[in-house]
Amino acid sequence: MRISRKTQWAVRLFFFVLASVLLALWFKENIAALPRATYLTGWLLLTLMVILTVYNGRKKIPFLPLATSKGWLQFHIYAGFFTLLLFVAHIRFRAPTGWFEGSLALLYALVMGSGILGLILSRTFPKRLTTRGGEVIFETIPVIRRSFRERAEALALQSIPEAKASTVADFYAQELAGFFSGPRHFWQHLFEVRSPLNRLLKKIENLNRFLNDQERDVMRQIADLVRQKDGLDYHHSLQLTLKLWLFAHIPLTYSLLIFSVVHVVLINAFSGGAR
């Protein structure tokens, strides 16, 4: 039976856990008792970390036939989790002491943590974005935001001569101008809180009591723009977050690698062959 593309991850996870358990058992039987097992886990850890980091480089040379990025990412994720096992074995199940090794472990934890965060974001945010709709390319968001604002402003102004009253325009200036002028409600969108939009729509609904038919029609169009602008903010918030976690993951990775290399030098210089 062919396994569906969307359930393959479960199969992969199963084999990963199985392989990890087998490896851990093998390690316990054959390696853990070796006098220099910690050196071995350390080198393996460093090698894996370098390979994991090379993924960043692979993305910069898409024209070479270096396996698919999908394959790389799968390896990245599973090998990344595997380093966690290695790391725990390497520190021998005890919290590191000392400033340097403490920093090293902290860096590892941050890189690992940001990686796990990134994985969770990458696996959950796309569905949320799709469900919400209003698909948009991140770079065009300011342009679209401007067009929404201009359309909303035009509508608000247009209603003045028609209704011979500035109610809608005043409302726009007071309540909506700020909303349309930039990205709003970043955190609420991130955590799927819908109250800001509902509040705005409620205000519009309240205002409708005091409007004539023409103005109400304008207000309906403005409300539509408010919804679209809210969707745009939603995309801005989530898409930005999908990009921002890498701002921690990638720089810290290089810090971690530098610390690791210094760690290797220090260990070799100071251990004097101790086991």
Partner: peptide, 9 residues
């Protein structure tokens, strides 16, 4: 789109 993180890779 359920899997695309819009990374533009």
């Amino acid at each position: 789109l359920d899997q695309c993180t819009r990374c533009d890779d």
